[in-house]
């Protein structure tokens, strides 16, 4: 076990310092045959982010620990991880959300269903391939007006949830259907399809509904609700999937 100290980074609401065990599932393809756990003892405060803790391990204890991160406040979608058995963003999970008291252990693993490249970093290409498969771009071939297209606040609000997605993959990689069948487009792609299907200005609704109606599409969903629970942006994903199912059934948004 490695000893480490961490400086509290969020003392505005800081509780007392505590000692935690951080158990990380490590895998280096250049030297490991299979993944193994490593545990680091870290001093931290309840207001620290899980990202602060693993950054600390990387910077001061074991620099080879590998993961993605960028904005550190839940908007870029880089640091989805399986934290204490649940998909979350490491930068949007405070220690007080995952541990109760000093001496507790947190576990950090890569998200599931995508190939692990190194430690907590997975191959995102299949995820973005599914994204690209739903035509994730606005289509309207009518002549553009000189100013904006008109859309009522109510119609604009129909995209409020789906356009909030940051493509972090927390939802898709928590979906049991996706785990067993990687060809399922997955919740994130359906949310993206929803964003365009329910955009009153878009003209490709029919094409997207057809994609959703394929056997890799929306009917694979068994409403397990894992996606909704995993979403760090509080998008009601299962509800959006249901709305897409209904649109496919009635062939209109």
């Amino acid at each position: 076990m490695t000893q480490a100290q961490i400086t509290p980074s969020t003392p505005a609401t800081a509780a007392a310092m505590m000692t935690l065990k951080v158990k990380v599932l490590r895998f280096d393809p250049e030297k490991d045959k299979k993944a193994h756990w490593e545990t680091y003892e870290v001093e931290a405060s309840a207001g620290d982010r899980v990202l602060d803790v693993i950054n600390h391990v990387k910077w001061y204890v074991d620099p080879s620990l590998t993961f993605r991160r960028s904005c550190a406040h839940g908007i870029c979608g880089s640091d989805a991880m399986l934290i204490n058995g649940r998909n979350r963003l490491a930068c949007k999970t405070l220690l007080r959300d995952v541990v109760k008291k000093s001496g507790d252990t947190i576990t950090v693993e890569p998200i599931r269903g995508l190939k692990v490249e190194k430690d907590l970093l997975v191959d995102m290409e299949p995820f973005f391939d599914s994204y690209k498969a739903i035509m994730p771009y606005f289509i309207n071939e009518s002549p553009e007006p000189a100013a904006e297209r008109i859309q009522s606040p109510e119609l604009a609000e129909r995209m409020a949830h789906s356009s909030n997605c940051i493509l972090c993959a927390c939802c898709t990689t928590s979906c049991p259907i996706f785990w067993v069948n990687g060809s399922y487009l997955g919740p994130a792609s359906i949310v993206q399809a929803h964003r365009f299907i329910f955009d009153s200005r878009d003209e490709a609704t029919q094409q997207r509904l057809n994609i959703m109606n394929q056997n890799t599409g929306v009917w694979r969903c068994r409403t397990a609700y894992n996606c909704t629970e995993a979403c760090p942006r509080d998008i009601p994903i299962t509800q959006l999937i249901e709305e897409v199912k209904r649109a496919v059934m009635y062939q209109q948004a």
């Binding site: 000189a146 297209r149 606040p153 604009a156 365009f196």
Partner: peptide
């Protein structure tokens, strides 16, 4: 306006213009 034509979901005024 071009961003709007690319589909950007702007918030809207009551008349449906970009807020």
């Amino acid at each position: 306006y071009e961003l709007e034509h690319m589909g950007l979901p702007f918030s809207r005024t009551e008349e449906g213009k970009i807020a």
